[in-house]
Design a protein around this nucleic acid. Structure first.
Lengths: 338, 338
DNA sequence: CTGAAAGCGCTTACAG
DNA sequence: CTGAAAGCGCTTACAG
């Protein structure tokens, strides 16, 4: 694109193009006040000189940066990757930059990461299923526009986008009872402060109760295998197994293989997120699909709106999930056949 | 920590503490020119007022930012998460911030991400196994200090840290021949421009040849299963299976389970990265361990040195790998028993 | 050990 | 449609 002088400034461009410094700024930012022909000439000169805006200077002058910060709880879930990609596209389409920060179990590390983001005066923060308590989120919301993904807004100035957990629970329970399952077991991660975990669990409990079933809950650590084994032993009757997410659900696959229970009739395995793991032939998991693209673009939109008007009341956008049905619950494909 | 005024500046702190603006700056940056007692009083005032440095302004004034950019090829490998965490620790220990960018198969997206990083004038860039051609890396190195992880430096002003692929290959091949394997198959991802893939493959080939074996290479897409099945069919003799990384290697596990070949005697499965997937009981993979912490801290150090002296010749730090031996190659534990 | 002053590169009213 | 000027919040010689 250009010969790169170490640090070309707008001054250099202005001089080379024979115009004033401010005109360069206006032209490069696509102001309508600049004649098209002039704009083109300036853009060309900038390109030739290898000019690249100094984001630090721009942020400072504009009192507002053009980057948004994404805070992920970890990288162990392909769902997060999807979100990161979607947001990458959504932001660059909106001429914004995206910086990702990877959380940690240690709140201290997380807070430091958020501090860095605030120090660069990001335009806004998107937090995916954060482990922080409500009051922390509200406090951060006082400093900068915040949008949560996958967790209900705690109020304050914080927005959120998420999939309807009640609807997801009804989809799963409906699917399982439709297959003739008589009990439902749920395996979730043993994590403190994981609101999403508890929302999911109670939604499932309500949906199960509504159809006259009870929900048997187990917690697991890194490996969901033992919890699944437990549930199988406790429930000789046809059992629906709901696992908190795909990555944990794959632990259930070898466990089921060891047993003599028939997939689809004696036992049915379902999970959440519908990531590439669920789609793999070896696993073929029935899984709740979250529309990552809609989640991502909505989050960016909410952030923008809040950046323009910080007083906006907290909003909570709820999306409808769908269910991707696969072999793990329905090997014959009878359900998808309808 | 503090009552947060929307945007407290050093000016406010100076006024509140009854000192000059520059003294605040010096004190907050820990300059030895400031009396300890004064420093403490200023720090306290800053805290009370909820002061947070404006990184944009600081970068601009200092002509150099305190953040480094990490570019990951994707998030599908737990090894990348390890690296991200290690770097997070290493940077915050060095009072730097870390911004992560997640790559994409599309070079265009990747270039845009790198552009954002360059726009904020990052102190340096760490790229993990990048898919970019050598000349692109060298070009980026002209603009900013660059350190590669997991890929040999292409020269120019670019540094690198990586594990010795030749040594890793010798470890694996040695382990497999020690178990009595007569052939070695390698499964790697079908990716264009993945230098690490080719380095690994040719190192294995050399190591195999050195012990009188040949290496049978297969490519795979998302699922390594079919390639593994191929290799098993082609090699009825005791076969060592080397898979490019843990996440692909777990695809081999169910395939091996289907066959009647005995793990440890008829077939031995090994891979790279030694992530949490390899450690899981269900998989228990023998895997080449890369010392993420050393990789990370070394990368940060190299970047720092290059930031101080951009003319430094390209450096290539090579680390010794170790092999974590598990059931997938040695179910009896005979090897680890030594 | 401390303060006054210039400057980092950009944006944005303001005046023409 | 274009330019001169002020200012964003910080750092850093420089002079005391």
């Amino acid at each position: 694109m250009a010969t790169s002088g170490q640090d070309v400034t707008q001054d250099d461009v202005a001089r080379a193009a024979g115009v004033s410094r401010s005109l360069v700024s206006l032209a490069l930012n696509g102001s309508p006040k600049v004649a098209e022909e002039t704009r083109r000439r300036i853009a060309e000169t900038a390109d030739r000189l290898g000019y690249r805006v100094n984001a630090a200077a721009a942020s400072l002058a504009r009192q507002q940066s053009r980057t948004i910060g994404l805070v992920l709880p970890n990288l162990r879930n392909a769902f997060f990757e999807q979100i990161a990609h979607t947001l990458g596209d959504a932001t660059s389409a909106g001429d914004l930059a995206l910086f990702v920060t990877v959380g940690s179990e240690q709140p201290e590390v997380l807070h430091r990461a958020i501090e860095s983001l605030l120090s660069v005066r990001v335009m806004g923060l998107i937090l995916v299923s954060p482990w922080l308590p409500d009051e922390d989120l509200i406090a951060i919301g006082e400093e900068v526009p915040v949008c949560l993904i996958g967790r209900r807004s705690p109020g304050g100035r914080v927005d959120s986008v998420r999939v309807d957990e009640e609807a997801a629970a009804r989809l799963l329970i409906g699917h399982l009872t439709g297959l003739g399952m008589r009990s439902v077991g749920y395996v979730g991660p043993r994590v403190v402060n994981d609101t999403s975990r508890f929302e999911r669990e109670s939604a499932l409990r309500r949906a199960a109760r509504a159809t006259g079933l009870t929900l048997d809950v187990r917690e697991c650590d890194e490996d969901a295998g033992p919890a699944v084994r437990d549930l199988l032993q406790a429930h000789p009757e046809p059992l629906g197994l709901v696992i908190h997410n795909d990555i944990l659900a794959i632990d259930a696959v070898p466990v089921l293989r060891e047993t003599d229970r028939h997939p689809g009739t004696d036992v049915a395995l379902v999970s959440y997120d519908n990531t590439y793991l669920a789609r793999r032939g070896e696993f073929s998991l029935t899984s709740v699909d979250q529309p990552e693209d809609v989640l991502g673009t909505t989050a960016v939109r909410l952030l923008r709106e809040r950046a323009d008007d910080a007083t906006t009341r907290s909003r909570d956008v709820v999306l409808e999930p769908t269910l991707a049905i696969r072999d793990s619950s329905d090997p014959a494909g009878s359900a998808s056949g309808h």
